[in-house]
Amino acid sequence: MTPLRSDLALIAREVPAGARVLDVGCGDGALLAALRDGRGADARGLEIDAANVAAAMAQGLAVVQGDADRDLADYPSDSFDIAILSQTLQTTYRPDRVIGELLRIAPRAFVSFPNFAHWRVRWSLMWNGRMPVTRELPVSWYETPNIHHLTVRDFKGFVAERHLAIDGAWYLAGGQAIGAAGANWRAEQAVFALRRG
């Protein structure tokens, strides 16, 4: 088994055993499989790409093909303990509504996203005047699925504005955890644990 992507490994450690978990944008189900096998979680997924859903289903995972912007409305309130949105927020049409839906479906949520204020991104924009193509953002502007770039500071601002609570925040660079100091410069990725405010 290939090791989990660093933000997923971090989230997997934080999910309590036996939790009911919905992974929104679950890809091929790597996190779901880890939560099911390692945490005994009742883990289910929503994924937009048919090939990914098929791969997950073939592993016996409960994954539904659908779009986070549209299909989260189908899930009843409080039907899960934890909702997860990893590396998906920036691809949604209305990230604010998606987060609202996550915290309707579950009282707690983990959200991870690439930090657009990382110094490499700033450098690229500043010196080249071009949209950055980096390790975390490897695709050109015209074909990137990321349509709502955001920064650590943007996210914290949004959370405050919506009166949500932050239970924890983790920052990653080069796949390694880093401290919170200067995170908006130094973090390539951020993971937030949210709770209804």
Partner: peptide
Amino acid sequence: SRRIVQALHAAGAEASFVELS
């Protein structure tokens, strides 16, 4: 099929769904 999936979600039942091409 989606209508069934929605109902299964609302019922709290475990569902997988994919549309093949």
